[in-house]
């Protein structure tokens, strides 16, 4: 499963990354090399093996649904690139 330049452009779009022509070429080669290495996994038989998404045997850690103080809103806005009327301001969406 070699990765094509078209794949790389599509993945860049999904990743919300603008990349140059030269970068697209470079990533096509490097990602192909890495995936070729990784493809060895396909040869292993894992028919009756469950995936390990988390190593610890913990499920659904619950806490009481109680209101607690959160991070102060004005502190959060201090780090924002652009704010207006107590909201994050962004360029036109549609």
């Amino acid at each position: 499963m070699a990765i094509t330049r078209k794949d790389v452009e599509y993945i860049a779009h999904l990743s919300r990354l603008e990349i140059t022509e030269a970068e697209a070429d470079e990533y096509t080669k490097q990602l192909s090399d890495i995936l070729e290495h990784v493809n060895r996994l396909s040869k292993l038989n894992t028919d009756n093996v469950e995936p390990t998404y988390y190593v610890m045997d913990m499920k659904n850690v619950f806490r009481k649904d109680e209101v607690e103080p959160s991070v102060d809103r004005q502190k959060v806005f201090k780090a924002a690139p652009s704010i207006e009327n107590n909201g994050f301001k962004v360029p036109k969406i549609i």
């Binding site: 990765i3 794949d7 999904l14 990743s15 990602l31 995936l35 990784v38 894992t46 093996v49 995936p51």
Partner: peptide, 23 residues
């Protein structure tokens, strides 16, 4: 980011991501 997006993308998730988690 690109590599991670690729292995999680539709059509490759089972072949790469799920397979890797099984190994």
């Amino acid at each position: 980011i690109m590599l991670g997006t690729y292995v999680l993308s539709s059509g490759y998730y089972d072949a790469y991501y799920k397979k890797a988690q099984k190994v």
